[in-house]
Design a protein around this nucleic acid. Sequence first.
DNA 1: TCAATTTACACAAACGTTTGTATTTGTTGG
DNA 2: CCAACAAATACAAACGTTTGTGTAAATTGA
Lengths: 342, 342
Amino acid sequence: MKKRVTIQDLAKELNTTPSTVSRALRDLPGISEAMKEAVRELAKKYDYQPNAIASGLRSGKSNTLGVIVPRVNRDFFSSVISGIEDVVFEAGYNVIICQTHDRLEKEQQYINTLLNGRVDGILVSLGLETREHCHFEKVVEAGISLIFFDRVCEEMDVTKIMIDDFDGSFKAVSHLVKMGYNRIAHFGGPDFLNVYRNRKDGYIRALEKSNLKIDERIIIQNDLTVEAGKRDAERLMKMDNPPDAIFSASDYSALGALLYLKEKTYEIPDQIGVVGFSNEKFTSLIDPGLTSVDQHSDELGKYCAELFLEEVNRGAGNFVPRKIILNPKLLIRRSSQRKVKI
Amino acid sequence: MKKRVTIQDLAKELNTTPSTVSRALRDLPGISEAMKEAVRELAKKYDYQPNAIASGLRSGKSNTLGVIVPRVNRDFFSSVISGIEDVVFEAGYNVIICQTHDRLEKEQQYINTLLNGRVDGILVSLGLETREHCHFEKVVEAGISLIFFDRVCEEMDVTKIMIDDFDGSFKAVSHLVKMGYNRIAHFGGPDFLNVYRNRKDGYIRALEKSNLKIDERIIIQNDLTVEAGKRDAERLMKMDNPPDAIFSASDYSALGALLYLKEKTYEIPDQIGVVGFSNEKFTSLIDPGLTSVDQHSDELGKYCAELFLEEVNRGAGNFVPRKIILNPKLLIRRSSQRKVKI
DNA sequence: TCAATTTACACAAACGTTTGTATTTGTTGG
DNA sequence: CCAACAAATACAAACGTTTGTGTAAATTGA
């Protein structure tokens, strides 16, 4: 086990001091070019690697960014993460990824761990259980930059970046209407999360605009899993007056519905249309292809990262929190393209 | 911006010293129960949070584990990561996830970053480009525990954990043979990676055992993407003597093949069978369902994590590197279940 | 030529812990 | 009652950087 060479070792060999070596390595002013060159050369010779921990302790900066998401195995989130990583890694930051599995407790735990680890910033997309936000207040109090994306905490005065869920829903439902569906059900998530409330509102607005009746009995709130989708599709289809289309706020419950409907040999899209949300990879692979709303996840991640970098570079005080809303895009696939309009 | 309370603040208020407080908090012997209680109480009162950076600097332990994978948006990897996280988080470790996107350069970069960040261990699954391993030697030299999973570096004398790719392939191909297919093509990856070499060997062995001819022309090496699958399926089907089944070392290229075949209206599985590898989520969603080999990804992640914990607890010297091989499981879906045996 | 300024470096403290050792206090046995 | 010992705590150094300040030498300007 090789002992790692430190700044002090370099200084000793050059008959100088750690401070000079440190400044030389970072190319700070006040050091002669000759000395800088000598330091760089020796550092290279010994393959000197700075101790990020020591540096972090002294400077108060860890060059690490924490990212908290419900789960990494959602294409949406893993794609956002890729976007974030691409940008911040270039700027010399590490990324710590934390999965809450939609559990509030995990979220709180991770916030603590990240604060203890002295990350320079935290990017969060809320879990399904999160209705309070005192754990996030701690982040702000600690002077650490906090940015929400997608599922945001609206009460907090920090930067948020999301997509226009209302608009995405509105487009999706308007498309269904245009295809001739006129009794459109909705699967939504908890109302306290911006994304699900807005998706529902967009759905309602689109119906209103088309003078279609809003029927609370076919607006269903569930946990947006495949299983919930199956279960609630069954419930809907067994009603006296079943819907002729389902617009789900999640691709997963849309998939559940689709699987149920296929099993029961409903004709999709002719008999019943299905539309999801998020443009998960599988939506283009299944049969029929599932119409969905793309959230520009990669772009969103990059944007998040850039905002974070700007915020840390400007210092907490000199940065005005902002809200950024990206326009989503409806991707029409076969599950909603009725050939025969009734 | 609230100043964080330190061990020294607590010591001052209790008229004692930092060392006593530190030991009290960690419940070390040599401190009276009364003092421990007082310290704990005050720590709670001020919501004292230990500075992990300072602790890491002094103790030489960062309580962080680095995980390097080709990409997080593969179900296999994201599931392994979940397994790892579940286990090590309980033990007080953080996880830093790094994506190489199968690029050697990224892999080397991340190794450096993790070493600088003084992680306590690194778990790696190799990228497709990795043929050398001096960047991993550095990890061992630094005395940091290194564990490979799935795509391992065979030359290195460290713990490796993988699935029995040979066996998985053998099972898959034997199944195809049993279903009556007798000209089975193979999509594989680079031979220098254990997983692809073994999958190919298993394929060959299964053919040999069934006295089927090995035809090099229908053993194809590509980059295992969907596109490659499409392209090479086309190539195969345009041969004079096309195969009646394709066994792919990756679900993605199997999917590509399947999409091409469906587009050309080949009957799957009757005219041609398709089998993939990894049991990606989409395999059960597409139509027809894609037969695939499950790698127990979650279990594998947990196992990795447990081995890491054992290794750090025992200290680098007192741990015998080992090789662990999990048995994979063939999941038979419709894409290979011929109703009519020819 | 000499004070004023600049340049290049050295010195030392600090970041918040952990840990080995010294010291104080209290307890025990002969 | 005092040496011997154990228990509880204090002291101080250390981890490897960064950074504010001090200081000598080199440079400048009149």
